[in-house]
């Protein structure tokens, strides 16, 4: 990644201003953060593309290099030729999508007729799913259709999604689903 050309606005005599403020001789700890040091100063910078609409705006993600390594700020990428640093309200709120305490962070399972979720391990969840895929495929697989033509398809499973996947994820996803034999494959483009 290269972030080449930041279009900083020209600010004259900012240093003087800083000195003037700190030289007043009384406590200027403001109500909210008015610190002269940017909160993003010691953060790792990565570029990203906004995950909402398909304009494809660029943003810069500031991730803390200390502590938990989480996002401390996301704002528009000034070098992105489409949005040039701008974002809409959803894009401006991106940090709250990532650092959100309502995100689910561990696999969960709801058993048949159960009224609740329970936390499970990845290995257990994926093994169980693989087993159900195999059972369902093996029991609903059609070698031939009613005309006797070879169709080699799994009609007992459907899959929807996703425009929320990256291109590379989309490709391996559809390859897997088609290899399993699914024909009911649909996603957001249809609705």
């Amino acid at each position: 990644m290269e972030v080449t050309r930041r279009q900083f606005i020209q600010i004259s005599s900012t240093t003087a201003a800083g000195l003037a403020v700190s030289g007043l001789g009384f406590d200027l700890v403001p109500v909210k953060a008015h610190a002269q040091m940017l909160k993003t100063r010691y953060a790792k910078e990565t570029t990203t593309i906004c995950p909402y609409c398909a304009v494809g705006c660029g943003a810069i993600v500031h991730t803390s290099k200390r502590g938990d390594g989480r996002v401390i700020n996301i704002e528009g990428d000034p070098d992105h030729v489409i949005n040039r640093g701008s974002l809409c309200s959803k894009g401006a709120a991106l940090a709250q999508l990532v650092e959100n305490e309502e995100r689910v962070t561990t696999p969960m399972y709801r058993a048949a007729y159960s009224g609740e979720w329970k936390k499970v391990s990845w290995d257990w969840a994926l093994s169980e799913i693989a087993q159900r895929v195999k059972e369902t495929r093996d029991s609903t697989f059609q070698y031939k259709n009613s005309n006797g033509q070879t169709v080699n398809r799994t009609v007992g499973i459907a899959s929807v999604g996703s425009a929320a996947l990256d291109n590379e994820e989309c490709w391996i996803y559809q390859a897997l689903m088609r290899a399993i034999g699914l024909v009911y494959i649909e996603h957001q483009a249809r609705i």
């Binding site: 900083f8 900012t14 800083g18 109500v31 704002e75 528009g76 640093g85 401006a92």
Partner: peptide, 24 residues
């Protein structure tokens, strides 16, 4: 009391206020 602070910290560091930078 609180109100807009002109993103003083950003301006001091050569950045536009957040509301200006974001505007398309």
């Amino acid at each position: 009391l609180a109100k807009c602070d002109m993103c003083y910290d950003r301006v001091f560091n050569g950045l536009a206020p957040a509301c200006v930078k974001v505007c398309p």
